[in-house]
Simulated scan of single mutants.
Amino acid sequence: MIYKFEVLITPFQLSRTIHLYLPDNYEESDERYPVIYMYDGHNLFRDQDATYGKSWGMETFLNNYDKPFIVVGMECNHEGQKRLDEYCPYEVENAYFGKIQGQGKPFMQWVVDELKPYIDTHYRTIPFRECTMIGGSSMGGLMALYTVIKHNDIFSKAACLSSAIGFCFHELQDELNQANLQSDTKIYMDWGSEESRHKRGLAYATSQNLEMSHQLVLRGAQTYPHLIINGKHNEATWEKQIPIFMDYLWK
Score class of each variant (00 low, 15 high):
residue 245 F to I: 02
residue 84 L to I: 13
residue 227 L to S: 01
residue 132 T to I: 07
residue 10 T to Q: 02
residue 215 Q to R: 15
residue 50 A to H: 07
residue 218 L to W: 07
residue 222 Q to I: 11
residue 129 R to T: 13
residue 135 G to C: 11
residue 92 V to C: 02
residue 20 L to M: 09
residue 67 K to V: 03
residue 251 K to D: 15
residue 124 R to D: 05
residue 203 A to W: 03
residue 172 L to H: 04
residue 170 H to C: 02
residue 136 G to C: 12
residue 6 E to D: 12
residue 114 E to L: 03
residue 240 K to R: 15
residue 248 Y to D: 07
residue 237 T to E: 01
residue 159 A to I: 02
residue 201 G to A: 08
residue 234 N to D: 08
residue 82 K to Q: 11
residue 99 K to D: 09
residue 97 F to M: 10
residue 26 Y to I: 01
residue 180 N to E: 15
residue 110 W to D: 01
residue 101 Q to V: 02
residue 113 D to A: 12
residue 197 R to D: 14
residue 149 I to G: 03
residue 50 A to T: 07
residue 114 E to M: 04
residue 179 A to M: 06
residue 154 I to V: 13
residue 171 E to G: 02
residue 156 S to R: 11
residue 67 K to G: 01
residue 146 Y to V: 01
residue 123 Y to H: 06
residue 108 M to N: 04
residue 228 I to S: 09
residue 111 V to T: 03
residue 78 H to N: 10
residue 86 E to M: 12
residue 237 T to K: 05
residue 38 M to S: 14
residue 107 F to A: 03
residue 4 K to R: 09
residue 45 F to S: 01
residue 138 S to T: 09
residue 86 E to F: 11
residue 168 C to L: 07
residue 104 G to L: 03
residue 210 L to N: 07
residue 47 D to W: 05
residue 175 E to Q: 11
residue 216 L to W: 06
residue 191 W to Y: 13
residue 151 H to Y: 15
residue 169 F to Y: 07
residue 40 D to R: 04
residue 152 N to E: 00
residue 207 S to K: 15
residue 98 G to R: 08
residue 103 Q to E: 10
residue 5 F to W: 07
residue 136 G to D: 02
residue 199 K to V: 10
residue 194 E to M: 15
residue 60 T to V: 10
residue 86 E to Y: 12
residue 24 D to W: 00
residue 52 Y to E: 05
residue 66 D to V: 10
residue 186 K to N: 09
residue 249 L to N: 04
residue 24 D to A: 10
residue 94 N to P: 03
residue 171 E to I: 06
residue 24 D to R: 08
residue 113 D to L: 13
residue 7 V to I: 14
residue 148 V to S: 04
residue 44 L to K: 11
residue 225 P to S: 08
residue 221 A to Q: 09
residue 100 I to G: 01
residue 230 N to Y: 00
residue 73 G to E: 04
residue 251 K to I: 12
residue 69 F to L: 04
residue 165 I to D: 01
residue 230 N to E: 08
residue 131 C to T: 12
residue 57 G to H: 10
residue 224 Y to W: 13
residue 75 E to I: 00
residue 5 F to P: 05
residue 92 V to N: 05
residue 168 C to H: 04
residue 186 K to I: 11
residue 249 L to H: 03
residue 115 L to R: 03
residue 97 F to L: 09
residue 207 S to T: 13
residue 227 L to W: 00
residue 244 I to Y: 11
residue 185 T to A: 06
residue 33 Y to T: 05
residue 14 L to V: 14
residue 98 G to P: 08
residue 66 D to R: 13
residue 95 A to Q: 14
residue 128 F to I: 11
residue 120 D to R: 03
residue 178 Q to V: 10
residue 19 H to D: 06
residue 240 K to V: 10
residue 51 T to Q: 09
residue 222 Q to C: 15
residue 96 Y to H: 06
residue 205 A to T: 04
residue 3 Y to Q: 14
residue 61 F to E: 02
residue 25 N to K: 14
residue 153 D to P: 06
residue 84 L to Q: 11
residue 126 I to K: 14
residue 105 K to C: 09
residue 145 L to W: 00
residue 63 N to G: 06
residue 54 K to G: 00
